[in-house]
Simulated assay, not measured.
Amino acid sequence: MSELHALFGGTFDPIHYGHLRPVEALAQQVELKRVTLLPNNVPPHRPQPEASAAQRVDMLRCAIKQQPLFEIDTRELQRDTPSWTVTTLEALRAERGNQQPLGFIIGQDSLLTVAKWHRWQALLSLCHLLVCKRPGYAANMDSPEMQRWLEQHLTHDVRQLHQRSAGCIWLAETPLYDISATEIRQRRHQNQPCDDLLPAAVIAYIDHAGLYRD
């Protein structure tokens, strides 16, 4: 079997356990050796980050220092245009060739709205979608057409993720962490503790940089 390479994009403003722990559980399930974190520059569907690009990358470095599973790819931060997933995947596919199995990790909330993504129909020609559960989100797609699309591509066989370069959807049995970066920023603005929500090294960086303060 080829080694499946997985990618995980996000604003990471800041990175927290709701990002890290489900992905670690997913890695165990589908035998991932490496997950590439892709910090977004201009998120297409949400407000601009509070922390700068450099600060968000620094926080990622703090979070993964003791975690050999993770690496960082900053290519999306070099762009001034929106971070379209499909554009990044096309670039990675060109670099890594057509035979390399690639997985893109998303949350269940993103799967349910995938039809709103830029050129979403091209995604499964470029990668597998590896989906982590999210608290409070529906299990089914919102239309019969999208539900059929999901069922056509769904796999329960880990080997297919390693044998095929793209085209499968894997619904992972990952732990649910009801944590959001918005909640962390709000807590920080209100001088409330966040010790249980993100790694101590990231909290130390936030304190040192004076982030998320009024």
Rank of each mutant, 00 (worst) to 15 (best):
E151A: 08
S83Y: 14
D195E: 14
L154K: 15
R148T: 14
F70R: 08
T155K: 06
V131H: 06
Q48F: 01
R96S: 13
Y205N: 00
H5C: 08
I184K: 09
L124I: 08
K116Y: 00
E183N: 03
Y205R: 06
W84V: 01
T81D: 12
K133L: 13
Q160H: 12
L211E: 01
S165M: 10
H5P: 01
S83L: 06
R185N: 00
R134T: 03
G210C: 09
L129G: 08
P135G: 11
R213S: 14
Q28G: 04
H16G: 06
L130W: 08
Y205K: 11
P49E: 09
A53E: 08
P44E: 03
L38H: 05
N98H: 13
K116Q: 13
Q100I: 09
D13H: 04
T113P: 01
L111P: 00
I169T: 11
M1T: 12
L154F: 10
R213D: 07
L111E: 06
Q160P: 03
S143T: 15
F104T: 04
V202I: 08
D58Y: 05
P39L: 04
R188H: 11
A166F: 08
L197Q: 15
H128A: 10
Q121P: 02
A115T: 14
Y177C: 11
W84R: 13
Q108D: 07
Q163K: 11
W170H: 06
L154D: 07
I106C: 05
V42L: 14
C62A: 15
S125M: 12
Y205D: 12
R96K: 12
E183F: 02
A201F: 02
P47Y: 05
A94R: 15
M146G: 00
L38A: 03
N40K: 02
P47S: 00
T11I: 07
L126T: 02
F8S: 02
S165L: 03
R56M: 03
H156G: 02
W149N: 00
I206P: 01
G136Q: 12
Y205V: 01
T11E: 07
I105N: 09
N140R: 08
Q28V: 15
V131W: 00
M59S: 05
Q100R: 15
E24S: 04
M59Y: 03
R185I: 10
I105R: 07
S165Y: 01
I64V: 14
W117C: 06
H128V: 11
W120S: 03
C132L: 11
G10K: 10
T85C: 04
A63T: 08
S180C: 00
Q121E: 15
N140I: 04
L69W: 02
R93H: 13
G10R: 06
D58C: 06
P39Y: 14
L89A: 09
L111K: 05
Q186I: 01
L32E: 04
H189A: 13
R213M: 14
P101N: 08
I169A: 00
